[in-house]
Nucleic acid binder design. Structure first.
Lengths: 118, 118
DNA sequence: GTCTTACTCAACCACATGGTTGAAGACAGG
DNA sequence: CCTGTCTTCAACCATGTGGTTGAGTAAGAC
């Protein structure tokens, strides 16, 4: 599963450890060993996380002797924010419209009420 | 797993069907049956997806006789965009700084080169 | 060449997830 | 009450995921 870019990106950030890694890479590039150091899990586990981030297009890796420095690629973030903001905007606008409809209804009701009182 | 709000929200949107449901709910509220109709999967499967979206705080449900109308809640989107944009900004800024460092280095090199020519 | 460092690959395990089907709830209408 | 409609619950299955350990690979250091 998780075939498309967007699915892979969201899935990658669904894990707290991976979000943490992204946060650290935002400060600066780091090797697998450096990234693994703060965690109690094995280096292989972190290596797997980095593979997921790489497959999601969030991280790119180069080579420096035995080391594999990881670098954050901010581009895919655009995809996600664009997707989210689109529906966020739609939902908020719809909410505003609903709100005004309710206001209209209330005003109408009050109008009717006043009519009844006449 | 997927304990915190942010993790649940990202995980919820990692599934294309659920993103599709969110897109439809942005247009307007809908019942489980209405939401399930376009898909070939069972209604129970969609019901499960809606539970995931609800647990993630992306969807709220009310009651209308037997029906359970679903409503998109845009609030959690804020959490996600804020998280993403924070590291996006950091990464981009770092990229700009690196860029200026490289420019400085190049200028320095040219300077040295000029010195050597003296 | 051999050693050490940095990392990946492979096999395995426990558990989560997306799907199924069938039964059970909740509720309006006769 | 019974019936039909809308939805969830429960059990199950296949596959995916995050973790482990142990072996294998790549490349500088001796």
């Amino acid at each position: 599963m998780a075939q498309d870019r967007l699915s892979r990106a969201f899935a990658a950030l669904a894990d707290p450890t991976r979000r943490d890694i992204v946060a650290r890479l935002a400060v600066g590039d780091a090797t697998v060993g450096q990234l693994a150091e703060p965690y109690r899990v094995s280096l292989q586990a972190i290596s797997k996380h980095l593979r997921v981030l790489e497959d999601a297009g969030l991280v790119t890796r180069s080579r420096d002797a035995q080391r594999r420095p990881c670098h954050l690629d901010a581009e895919v973030f655009d995809l996600m924010t664009k997707w989210i903001e689109r529906y966020q905007r739609q939902a908020e606008e719809r909410y505003r419209r609903l709100d005004s409809v309710l206001t209209e209804l209330t005003e109408e009701k009050q109008h009717v009420h006043r009519h009844e009182q006449d």
